[in-house]
Design a protein around this nucleic acid. Sequence first.
RNA 1: GUGGGUGUAGUUCAAUGGCAGAGCACCGGAUUGUGGUUCCGGGCGUUGUGGGUUCGACUCCCAUCACCCACCCCA
Length: 422
Amino acid sequence: MKYNIPRGTFDILPQTSYKWQFVMDSFRKIAASFGYKEITTPIFESADLFERSSGESSDVVQKEMYRFTDRKGREFALRPEGTAPVVRSYVENHLDVLSSRTKLFYIGPMFRYDRPQAGRFRQFYQYGIEAIGSNNPYYDAEVIALEMLWLNSLGLQNIRLELNSVGCPTCSAAYDEALRDFYRPQLPQLCPDCQKRFEQKPRRLLDCKVASCKALRQGAPSQLDYLDQPCAEHFAQVQAHLQAMNIPFTLNPGIVRGLDYYSHTAFEFIYEGLGAQNSLAGGGRYNGLIEQIGGKSIPAIGFAGGFERLLLALENEHIDFATCPKPQVYLICLGETARTAILPYLNSLRLWGIAIDFDPDKSSLKAQFKTADTVGARYALIVGDSEIEAKQLNLKDLQSGMQITLPLDNGQALQQFIAQNK
RNA sequence: GUGGGUGUAGUUCAAUGGCAGAGCACCGGAUUGUGGUUCCGGGCGUUGUGGGUUCGACUCCCAUCACCCACCCCA
């Protein structure tokens, strides 16, 4: 029987795993430098957690969740997103009593049953930031700055930050009504999808790609005109902070988050050149979520980004961001006696932290040298029966061709030589 | 869930309905003690799978599966 990997999933193979490690490590560093600490939650949770937080009508809940029932009949789901589990953990573990604000980040796989395409998978890897405990617009700007500065530092310069405010539940509802009032007369001319949007999420009408719907959009009311005083003030402050930080942004009243729990600030990081899925990261404020999940009324803001899309973007820009690790030394053995006698020395070298490779199935000198070249080793360590007898080793620099003789000690001489000739 | 495209060697790709091939990679060899270049040698692959048409199918038809791309939506 031959098996296939499940649809929409992928193996991270050794020829690319170092790139994944690099971007994950890099994200951990930037998050730490902004004062965020890592949290890891299970990859499955009560299905109810996602249904309640994301919203029953959201696509994620309606058609994209991997749900299953366990042996005792409990309903679980593979997590489709990272914020609800983090908030669940925050509430469950009373993280709020430790500090007035809690700065968290996470890295891990998410799952959505979707048709795969460029930059979209059924199991995909996200990084996320959550700043919980404050409604200060500074934090909106801080999490945005973290992402923008990080992407820039990786070498991605042409990133577009699109910013919007979806208001609080009160002014958000007022805006939805205004939109319906605007569209109601032309309802019959809208595309079938938009007819549904009219009922469920009127603001989705604004980014329909059908030409006829685009035309009908002329003169539609803007969310920004419907923000109440506190929401407008908050949004102005967010923009002021971003300007002070020199983070460029464009206002896009069409930014709508897919999950119900968002309020106030909403934003997306766009990179053109990924195919149809051009959003590298997205997020926003979710001041009502913690109370909804059973905690106190605590404000928070965060975002999540996709590693697959980030790697695609780096690839697309031909950015040489990480190099494949290579062994420093390749061991070349001649003769059966030497092959066994060298083993304690080989172990010592590895304990000294020297990356050393060896292929016992290669016998000829030529084949072993070739392998040393293909694995990219800097040095070849050559040992035969005569060297063992003389308690000596030959070390050849494969770049310069120079060869020296070292004592067959506990590995220290070689370790020192490599340290001095970096 | 809907639509379009593609399936041939490890890989990238060839092959009017008439004997399934090449580049790259990989392995071996050119006096088992000094590499990269060069030269020589090494390939029977269920042509994704199952049917059908035909004297004959990689090629045409049907079904199916997988992958890619797009819609919806999102990271």
